[in-house]
């Protein structure tokens, strides 16, 4: 397995730390003029999503993590696994378990394209596009006349996600939602 020395550390590099795949976020050289050099590194553990700060002795190395991001179309779930297919024309399919899709579940729509992070060839996590378009399946009836006040109400979308929407939104409308903030963006004309 390839490994990376501290002088190759840069943000975005995927490495193994204490058995877990991590992505390097920041790398800072600290060195007293006459003293030993160290690299102070911020990493995100890709399994737990938790951020770590760890210092390495300059010159030491970490094993590379076999982690790659691939664009895949979401196909369906059988209840136990969520199935994705590569968009590169190979039709190759991958099954993600509940843990890998836990963060993306409320934005998961069939035929939409997601970034699937593979670790040792198996889905580790799934990242939604920045914006998704989903249909409103439940919300209180629209209240005309309140639009000027900019009030909001909760609306349940087809995936189960609940977002705050303007009062004029009605069931059956398709909304554009920002998956990073979970915020309503606008109505989509169908």
């Amino acid at each position: 397995m390839a490994s990376y020395s501290t002088n190759e550390f840069r943000s975005g590099l995927k490495v193994l730390l204490e058995g877990d795949p991590c992505i390097i976020l920041e790398n800072e050289l600290v060195k007293p003029g006459k003293g030993q050099a160290f690299n102070r590194v911020k990493l995100r553990n890709l399994t737990t999503n938790r951020q770590w700060e760890r210092t390495f002795k300059s010159g030491d190395s970490l094993e590379a993590a076999d982690v790659i991001d691939q664009e895949m179309e979401y196909l369906y779930t059988d209840g136990e696994f969520w199935h994705f297919m590569l968009t590169d024309g190979s039709f190759e399919q991958y099954a993600a378990d509940a843990k890998a899709v836990s963060d993306v579940l409320k934005w998961l729509k069939e035929q939409d394209v997601y970034v699937v992070t593979l670790y040792n060839g198996a889905p580790l996590s799934v990242t939604p596009p920045n914006f998704v378009e989903l249909e409103v399946v439940d919300t209180d009836p629209g209240m005309k006349g309140d639009t000027a006040q900019g009030g909001t109400k909760p609306a349940t979308l087809s995936t189960g996600a609940v977002v705050n929407v303007p009062l004029f939104i009605t069931i059956g409308e398709v909304l554009k939602v920002d998956t990073r903030s979970g915020a309503y963006v606008n109505r989509v004309k169908s």
């Binding site: 600290v30 007293p32 030993q36 002795k57």
Partner: peptide, 9 residues
Amino acid sequence: ECLDLLLSH
């Protein structure tokens, strides 16, 4: 090395 680490951190 320990002293250098504590110095810088």
